[in-house]
């Protein structure tokens, strides 16, 4: 059952606002507001989406962005959710896509974005003796190689 992705994205735009662009064959980018995340992913699931490739966290200077790379019939839809730096949190999607558990934990570790409702928000990849509140992939974090002490 082949679904027309552009039509789906058009419907999403109408129902929940946001904007989509087609970068090239099989690559779409969709920007939405974080409050609509659950509804949009739910809608895509009803229309055949089941594979989440990964979740990327990006520090774009002014704000954070959480990118969900979803695969629908071999085509990748990247949902971009901007998050403000003052309040870096958004809802989890593990209730819809259980495979997201490890990816959300990783973004939490390296960027410090909280995923509300995550069933298991433990540290994933940083070592046990890594200080709390230090997020390596934030742009303002620099590593002092000489001393080797993580601040």
């Amino acid at each position: 059952m082949a679904v027309n992705i552009e039509m789906l994205l058009g419907e999403i735009e109408k129902k929940w606002g946001g904007k989509y662009t087609k970068q090239r064959d099989r690559r779409f980018f969709l920007e939405i507001n974080k409050d609509n995340l659950q509804s949009v992913v739910s809608f895509l699931k009803e229309n055949g989406l089941y594979h989440l490739s990964t979740i990327t966290g990006v520090d774009s200077g002014e704000q954070f962005e959480v990118l969900y790379h979803l695969d629908l019939q071999g085509e990748i839809i990247t949902i971009r959710v901007p998050i403000s730096k003052d309040n870096p949190q958004l809802s989890t999607i593990t209730n819809l896509i259980p495979g997201a558990v490890l990816y959300e934990r990783e973004v939490q570790d390296i960027l410090g974005i909280k995923f509300l409702g995550h069933p298991d928000p433990r540290r994933l990849i940083l070592p046990d003796d890594w200080p709390e509140g230090v997020y390596p992939l934030r742009k303002d974090w620099k590593y002092d190689r000489a001393s080797g002490i993580i601040k």
Binding site: L126, P127, P136, Y143, R145, G148, I150
Partner: peptide, 9 residues
């Protein structure tokens, strides 16, 4: 290649 990476001695 990992010289300069955090998390690595």
């Amino acid at each position: 290649v990992f010289r300069g990476c955090y998390n690595v001695y």
